[in-house]
Write a protein that binds this DNA or RNA. Structure first.
Lengths: 195, 195
DNA sequence: GACAACTTTGACAAGGTGTAAGAGTTGATT
DNA sequence: AATCAACTCTTACACCTTGTCAAAGTTGTC
């Protein structure tokens, strides 16, 4: 990470192998141990420790990788164009599509951790949402009254909640996304009553 | 639990001592071990196992107790009277007041568990919210369009998100609750446009 | 081909969960 | 008040996971 030139290609290969295995395994079974991950990666447990100093460190790396993937997918949604509400929905759909591959990892993101650190980790995603929200606020499409940070948190929370409704089979995907979309718009749209 | 008459008062005393200590300790440090809990309860580790067959069993009991307390507080909010929106806000404030004593336990409620089981555990709370929501839908105060279960999930998700905003110091309690209140009403109120 | 980086093997300490048996206490029952 | 049953305590053990260490083996790189 410090000097890519001084790392052997071998090492990087092992590192990604471990990371891939961790994503896969923890996606199925969040309580998988280091030994299981190492075996799944075709590597010894000590080799895992050679790349990630602790289990927590590995989990962090896994979450970071997922965050990165989701952020990339969001960037491909061209959220800077078109009406802000449409852009927001596109953004969320893109994020959802990228995140749903390993549902357990989404839950894993909400693991016990220092709040600031946890916040910093989700920031790439929150920032992209905040950007569209801000654009909508400036354009009069979203209500500028509530704090931006609250609106971001609300959007994320509603998205997660909707995702769980689908995952647990209480709603069909179409019904749930429809409810989410209209709900979000209603939540963010300013009252026409007052100026 | 099966036959209260055949249980000695002693046993019940120990049980509640352990439960109290667990609530206290896990409220500060969610990863506290059985030994620490036992010591805090003034009891041996084995005595803990005499009442709770596993650590998971104990966690379940702790969450259940919190749920019970919150449910009681909600019942004291007389949510069956007055306009449904006001009643909902009263209900949530009551729940919040009862739950905020040990913030870590709220997070602990969202621990990895079988979805159905987890759902069943939160049902006392969800049911009370659903009741007010249903009343509001019947009375035309809330939009009957989205699925009731989604509205319940949305209300809970927004409440939690708002709670975190406060807890992490990103918003003042007054600002956050104001945002939550107006946000909820906006989310649940039907469009005046269509009949 | 030689050096350095990387991996492997094997072993270990520490800490947590869960189980077991036997002796000691305390509550309930008569 | 005595007795039995229930409850608790002590001690001990087996097991698993995390994290660390050292030495030998292997593979990339210059």
């Amino acid at each position: 990470m410090i000097s890519p030139q001084r790392r052997r290609a071998d090492a990087e290969r092992s590192r990604t192998a471990v990371l891939d295995a961790a994503v896969q395994l923890l996606g199925e079974r969040p309580d998988a141990g280091m030994a299981a991950i190492a075996t799944a990666a075709g590597v010894t447990r000590q080799t895992v420790y050679a790349h990630f100093s602790s289990r927590d460190d590995l989990l962090t790396a896994v979450v970071d990788r997922m965050t990165e993937k989701v952020a990339e997918a969001m960037d491909a949604a061209s959220a800077d164009e078109g009406p802000a509400p449409d852009a927001l929905l596109r953004l969320l759909d893109a994020a959802w599509g990228a995140a749903e591959t390993y549902p357990a990892l989404v839950r894993l993101g909400a693991r016990p951790a220092p709040p600031e650190e946890d916040r910093a980790r989700h920031r790439p995603i929150a920032d992209r949402i905040a950007r569209v929200l801000q654009r909508g606020r400036d354009g009069g499409e979203f209500d500028p009254e509530p704090a931006l940070s609250w609106q971001v948190a609300a959007v994320i929370a509603l998205s997660h909640a909707t995702g769980e409704e689908i995952r647990d089979g209480r709603m069909s995907a179409t019904d749930a996304t429809a409810a989410l979309h209209s709900g979000l718009l209603r939540l963010l749209t300013p009252d026409p009553g007052k100026p």
